[in-house]
């Protein structure tokens, strides 16, 4: 089974770090994984996106033509990437700032008001982790418990101080979808 996900949004919304976190977690779970960021001028203020492929077998192409999942954190990303989503795919949308109406009838839209939820937690910076929590609930690419139990290792040294906050954010997203 090979699952392709595109994470997208404004530069600064933590889009690349969302994808990187997922890729790292999947790698630690023993899966084959590739992480392909968009780069250069695009990551400085404009739109940013990355592609994460997780598989049980060796991954041929790190470029995804028809991803099973898309995460869109802003309107331009929603417009751009909902069209490439495979038929029957799921798009997770930051509904706080995105109009989630799609012309496609063959895809599923999961609206998560991530910006609002993040503000409730006191910092907009965790919006990406809230979205990742919701995404994990919907996709189950990596076991949620595995993610929480290994968060320190997954996030790496740089973010060691933020473990508690990130955990709370992931849980907030996860439970939002549960409800």
């Amino acid at each position: 089974m090979t699952i392709k996900t595109i994470f997208s949004g404004f530069g600064g919304q933590g889009v690349l770090s969302m994808g990187f976190t997922l890729a790292n977690a999947a790698m630690l779970e023993g899966k084959y994984v590739t992480y392909l960021p968009s780069y250069g001028v695009e990551v400085r203020g404009g739109t940013a996106n990355c592609t994460v492929v997780v598989s049980d077998e060796e991954i041929a192409s790190p470029v995804a033509s028809e991803p099973e999942f898309v995460v869109a954190m802003n309107q331009p990303s929603f417009a751009r990437f909902q069209s490439v989503l495979t038929s029957g795919g799921l798009i997770c949308v930051n509904s706080s700032i995105v109009n989630t109406t799609s012309a496609r009838g063959d895809i599923e839209v999961l609206a998560v008001p991530t910006s609002d939820l993040a503000e409730k937690m006191g910092t907009i910076k965790v919006a990406n982790m809230i979205m990742l929590g919701a995404f994990l609930k919907a996709s189950n690419i990596v076991a949620f418990d595995f993610m929480l139990n290994n968060l320190q290792e997954i996030l790496g040294e740089g973010k060691a101080k933020m473990i508690k906050l990130n955990r709370q954010a992931l849980e907030a997203g996860y439970t939002f979808v549960k409800e």
């Binding site: 990187f20 890729a23 084959y32 590739t34 992480y35 392909l36 960021p37 780069y39 250069g40 790190p62």
Partner: peptide, 10 residues
């Protein structure tokens, strides 16, 4: 190319 350079894999 940039893809090989930027891409992350185990």
């Amino acid at each position: 190319d940039g893809m090989l350079g930027q891409m992350m894999e185990p």
